[in-house]
Design a protein around this nucleic acid. Structure first.
Lengths: 229, 229
DNA sequence: CAAATGCTTCGACTAGGAACGAAGTATGAA
DNA sequence: TTCATACTTCGTTCCTAGTCGAAGCATTTG
């Protein structure tokens, strides 16, 4: 009854286990179909459909029709940020679902966070970039930016910065990782780096999961390209 | 059924309107009693009690018994951060409860965010500090810090930095404002600044609300002390 | 065209949980 | 001790919202 935005509605949307599963599945950044999400959430098809319309009406998801499929994605980066924040809080409270399956080590090593790399390797990359003064903070807008040296470095990796700068999405953003509780690089550059690693054959995304496989050669290269003190 | 922390539980806790109202009320940083929160949420006393135990069991609130009162506060800064993130998302979607009462202008001008100043004036302070290079970012930990000039400046304002540095809470943190969508200063220093302004008689917190009243003299002083280009 | 796939809508069922009031417990004041 | 305040616990009512299966659309494939 007071001031402020309506938190409860969004909370209720995230509050249902089935929907929460769907949202975490979509943190992979991949667009998923209704049936995939139904399976992910462990719920019937009709149920999933109803959940998805609710999530969309609530502004958390966007849909894209393609043929006889309906693909869903998180509506925007803000949604991913809220989810990461929630995961951080939940993890911090030890409310971790310690389902220590075989996937967990791989998840911790390297995985996808919305659309950029997360996990051990991502944290290492962030550390390496900042240790070498390739990143700086504009305290005014409090947004992260590449230094001139950083720009040179990134372009030598084969990434064209011009299109990234033109987009309305910030080039650099830091993103707090729930497994590491450390920062890694998000934003347009974070996404571009992951794409580039895939093009180079250093990394490969497992389909229908958040795991990123790093090839032995890629591992070697990454350690060389991103040294830490 | 997958990897990751249990988001749904927390979401469900925030998802109930009564509980959401309580949480937003507690964003003021003040400790509130059961009866106060009941009224804030527009709900009976017994109902409030049950909600509060749930919030506490869920790790979102801490309680402090004092005499025959039971005071509740947000369990920690992370909780406040999640709430701010949610408010940001909700506001961004236009799900604002546009209850444009007389309070709103005051809320926008200056209010309390968990335990530090937010609103127009807080954003101005942050801008002023960063324009004068009093703030810098350690890109490694991605934590905000005071420069040497900044430390001098703050101590001249009458704030003793030593105790702040010793605490486990970060001295500087930036906090994104849902009304401004700009950054303002949080962390131990943010809290200390607000306290200092109150000691100087520049600001006064309205009880049982998030509004901070800035006195005419305080307004003048603040504009002088925190100039912006 | 028909058959198959992907998804939505409808209807019925059920469970969980939010609400309240009344009675019970604990702390403080007279 | 007695009364009042602050809160909790219990029992009941009620309603929302999640679930499924069956049937209906829509689109692609054969």
């Amino acid at each position: 009854m007071k001031e402020g935005p309506d938190i409860a509605q969004i909370g209720a949307l995230i509050g249902d286990p089935a929907r929460a599963n769907m949202l975490t599945a979509l943190m992979s950044g991949k667009a998923l179909t209704v049936s995939e999400l139904a399976q992910e959430a462990g719920v019937g098809l009709s149920t999933a459909s109803s959940h998805l319309t609710k999530l969309q009406d609530g502004g958390l998801l966007s849909q894209a029709k393609q043929g006889r499929h309906r693909y869903f994605t998180l509506a925007g980066p803000e949604v991913g940020e809220v989810l990461e924040a929630l995961m951080g809080l939940a993890a911090h409270q030890g409310h971790l679902r310690t389902r220590t399956g075989p996937k967990d080590p791989a998840l911790r090593a390297a995985r996808v966070c919305y659309d950029h790399l997360a996990g051990d390797m991502a944290v290492r990359i962030f550390d390496s970039l900042s240790q070498r003064d390739f990143l700086s903070l504009d305290t005014h807008t409090s947004s992260l930016a590449l230094t001139h040296e950083g720009e040179n470095f990134v372009e030598k990796l084969g990434i064209d910065l011009e299109p990234l700068k033109k987009g309305r999405r910030p080039v650099c953003r830091s993103c707090l990782d729930w497994s590491e509780r450390r920062n890694h690089l998000a934003g347009a550059l974070g996404a571009a780096l992951l794409t580039r690693f895939q093009d180079l054959g250093w990394a490969r995304r497992e389909k229908a999961s958040r795991i990123v496989q790093i090839s032995p050669a890629g591992q070697q290269e990454l350690l060389k390209v991103f040294p830490v003190a």
